[in-house]
Structure formats: C-alpha cells, structure tokens
Design a protein around this nucleic acid. Structure first.
Lengths: 191, 191
DNA sequence: AGGGGACGCGAACAACCGTTCGTTTGCTTT
DNA sequence: AAAGCAAACGAACGGTTGTTCGCGTCCCCT
C-alpha cells in the first residue's frame, strides 16, 4: 500500500503549490514516473484523492485539540496547549494543511458539508476554552464568539506565511503568538 | 464601458464562489445572457480578467491605509483606523476581496510578483504603526514582525467568515476585534 | 513449475477548455 | 437613406481534462 501513500504525498504537494484544479492527474503521475491512467489502479477519482487529504487533515486538528482538552484543565494551559497543537499540525504537514484550508470548497456538496460540520465542532471546542476562562474569572468578559474567531484567525492564517526553512521553530512562533493573544484576553494582574 | 464593468462584477462573484479555474469563460457569459466568444470583444484574456480584479482590490487596501496614515498620528488611533479601513475594504466588496486573497497565485509569475511586492509594502506600513506604538511607549515592546502578522491574520481572515446578511455591521465587528488586539498590545495602565 | 493477481502501459474516449473569426445585428452619425 | 461601427453570434480550432480498458509484465504464493 506504499504506492497510495506516495500518490497522496505528491498530490498534497502539487495541490498546495498550484491548486486542485490547476493540477492534472497526469501532473501527479509524471512526478511518480507513471502514466496518467496508471493512478486509477490505486485511486477511484481525482476528487477522492482531494477528499483523502482534506479528511486526514481535519482529523488531525480534531485529535490534537481533544488530547489537549483531556490533559489540561486550567484555561490558560488549555489555551496555550491548543494553540501550540494547532500550529504544530500545520507545521508538521504544511502541504496537507494548505490543501485543507484552500481547496475544501472544491469537494462535492456532501463532503463540503462534512468538512463544515467538523469545522464547527472544532470551533465549538475553542469557544469552550474561551468560555471556561471567562467563567473562572481568568479572562476578561469578552464576546466568546468574536474572541474565538480572532484566535482562530491567527492560528489558521499561520499556513499562509510559515516556512519550515525559516529561522524560528514552529513551537517558538506558536508560543509568542499565543502569548500575544493571551495578553488581550487575560484580566489585568497576573499571567 | 458599462459592459466591462458587468463582466468584472460577474467574474468576481463566480471566481469567489467556485474558484478561478472552476469557472469557465462560458459560465461568466451565460450569467450575462451572452455567448462565450462574445466576451472577447471586451477582454483579451481570462487571466487579464483575474488580474483586473486582483489589481483593483490591492489598490483599495493600499489607498485605505495611506489615508489613515496621512490623517492620524497617534499610534492607537492609527491602529484602530487602519484595522477598520482594512475590514471595510473587505466588507464593501466581499467577492473581490475573496478573489484577491484566494486566487492571486493563479496569476502569471510576473503579476504574482507584483502582488507580492504590493503586499510587502502594505505589511511594512502596518509594521510602521506597531513600531511607532512601541517607540512612543504606548505598546509593549513585542516583536514587531510577529505582532504585525498576528494583527494581519485577524484582518485578512475576516473575509472567510464575514457575511453581509449577518446581524452585526462590519464596523461594529472591526471595532471589537481591534479592541481585542489592542488589549494585547497596549501597556498595562490606560487604553 | 505454474497460476494468479497486482501493477503499469498507452491508446482511446467524450467532454470541456480558452480563444479565434467571418458574419450578422442594430444603433448612431451624417 | 447611407455609411460606419461596436457588440453579439455561433461555429470552429487545437489542446487538455478525467477516466476507461485491453494488454502485457513481473512477482508472489502454493
């Protein structure tokens, strides 16, 4: 089954660099020294390939935040952990994350709906973190939905500018960004 | 010249909804009750159409922040003004802004380069705002590049979730978001 | 040793792509 | 009324798209 993995990996790279519709099945095949039609021994549809990439990425985001929520209970620790985990998922697999954020609209209506449902669930977990911080008096009483959107904006936009060959590690960047966001959330006094 | 404007408007909508490569010249023509080939009396290339949309959007962002920098000098006022202006450009022309952020990579290498240069210039102006705030002792001594990236993440991601038919006005949202970001930047004491 | 299944080839498919072009239409100007 | 002109038609172009399929070829299992 190593071949399918190879195909996915090449597809991730090309889809992320050129976009889904600007990448042909023959482009993917060429990078593997194969003929276009040969890919259909391993995949059944070009869209299935996109779906596989998007589905896996979505799964990783969910698993990452669930692990944090399971292990941490303090709002600030949860916030830092979830932010760091989100950034790590992107950094660990930048092409797949890029495809996830950029190309999910090209999926069929049903699959698009599934992505949206997963995204809503993910955002609800983040809102829970923010809500918990306010309820425990650690965060200022800001609008939960709006603050969550701001946080996720920074977290999601990360894929647009992060480059692994850059000078700073993803963890170091994640910590600095989450510190900046926390400063806007936490009540004046202690961090 | 009204016809070209019609074409641009339809192209903005379709490109933003389905993506550039998923929209054919015939799709655009159909919405105008025209034949595919008829568009070529007004445009010279499909890519030229995309370029026109992207170019105009980029221009609006630049003009908006330049006006703010010209009128305001206080760092906090500049920050609030620039953020509000950025969000207003997106809200005022959501389809074009969506195409700008989402499809600029599909342009030719030279035009892509021009977009990048403009974006760098825009970001430099934002860094100038943050830098000025720190220098005057109004903002905490954060990393200018990183803080600017965080702010622009929230500002740019706005197009992904803002819907004009929603309950809150773009200005009200912009003010709340910029307040949240400012709280993370400003030194403890006064706002 | 021999049979079977996975894998890859390469030609072919219908559909669609962006773009061109000769022709027709219909309005405006003289 | 005639001439001119921009706009739209509609057929056609060469190329590319995703996908199919019959055919070999190689390796693994018994």
């Amino acid at each position: 089954m190593g071949r399918l993995e190879d195909i996915c990996q090449v597809a991730e790279r090309l889809f992320s660099e050129r976009g889904y519709h600007a990448t042909s099945i023959r482009d993917i095949a060429r990078k593997l020294h194969l003929q276009g039609g040969s890919l259909y021994a391993h995949i059944s549809t070009k869209e299935d390939l996109l779906w596989e990439i998007v589905r896996r990425a979505a799964e990783q985001f969910l698993q990452a935040i669930e692990a944090v929520l399971r292990q941490e209970s303090d709002p600030v620790a949860r916030f830092r952990g979830a932010f760091r985990a989100h950034v790590a998922v992107i950094a660990r697999n930048l092409p797949a994350a890029t495809v996830y954020f950029h190309e999910w609209r090209q999926l069929s209506p049903q699959r698009r709906e599934a992505v949206l449902q997963q995204r809503d669930l993910y955002e609800a977990m983040w809102r829970e973190i923010v809500h918990g911080g306010i309820e425990q008096g650690v965060f200022r009483p800001v609008d939960v939905a709006m603050a969550t959107r701001a946080v996720l904006s920074v977290a999601n936009w990360f894929y647009q500018w992060y480059r692994p060959e850059g000078p700073r590690s993803a963890e170091s960047i994640a910590d600095e960004l989450s510190e900046l966001l926390l400063a806007g959330l936490v009540k004046e006094g202690q961090s």
